[in-house]
Amino acid sequence: MTDIIMGILEEGLTYAIMALGVYLTYRILNFPDLSVDGTFPLGGAVTAVLLQAGANPLLTLPVSFFAGAAAGMLTGLIHIKLRVRDLLSGIIMMTALYSLNLRIAGRANVPVFSRETIFDNAFLDKWVPAGVQPFLAVLFLFLIGMVMKRLLDWYLGTKSGFLLRAAGDNEALITSLAKDKGTVKIIGLSLSNAFVALSGCLYCQKSGFFEISTGTGTMVIGLASVIIGMKLFQKRTSVKATTAVIFGSIVYKTCVAAAISLGMAASDLKLITAVLFLLILAVSSGRKGKVTANA
């Protein structure tokens, strides 16, 4: 039982960082950014290659972060400078990144089982008591997740972050402040994809291998996490949106785990997952309805 919960928390917290990135573009910037399907495995590819080369696992975190930022910036440049529609610029970037990821990684599947990762290395083996070892991954992912959440919260409170929020709600306001809305969007996309690639980096280290196909459907998982999170906490104004998104990601992974554990026919897995989402969304909507009726 604890193993199952640990598994879900590991998956959920890893994807939560990606979901924070999707939250930034989808909810704040109002930009449906499909390049995340490419930047998530980009983080993994960069990480796998660095670990194979014997780099310090800690180094993979900033390198993935900036690789993602660069890719996001390109999506922004395609959108702003070449005037390509938002959805399409994401698709272009995602398509290009597929080949680029294969180039970076060298092949479609790169194992790092035998390498040191941030979750499994000689230092931890030596200093952390064996009893705590199984919980290390969750602890680390929680800490990294918190740091990234705080970072995002802090950024959204700065002047640049304020402009970003305005870019999603009211573009005219940006122009009236004599700021370039294009630059604001590019910054937003960079930051978002940096989060996504960092999540891909953690995912690769956690699962012990990079696999090109893990990118497919990242956007869908991100969107589902954001929407579930926002929906669950919509009446709780005291809960920050970023916190809600992290919970959303964990709930998403719980749904998948529950669908697996329900032991249905293999082909029905996605259907069960979909039904569970629907249930969550319906239940949280129902509660909102009642509250409104009482008010």
Binding site: E11, S207, E211, G217, V256, I260, G263
Partner: peptide, 22 residues
């Protein structure tokens, strides 16, 4: 025998492995 299929999805494969191992 417990049988699970990941339907060619890497993320699901990880969760299935966790679930069976647990």
């Amino acid at each position: 025998v417990r049988y699970e299929n990941a339907q060619a999805d890497g993320g699901t494969a990880n969760q299935i492995a966790d679930s069976i191992a647990a």
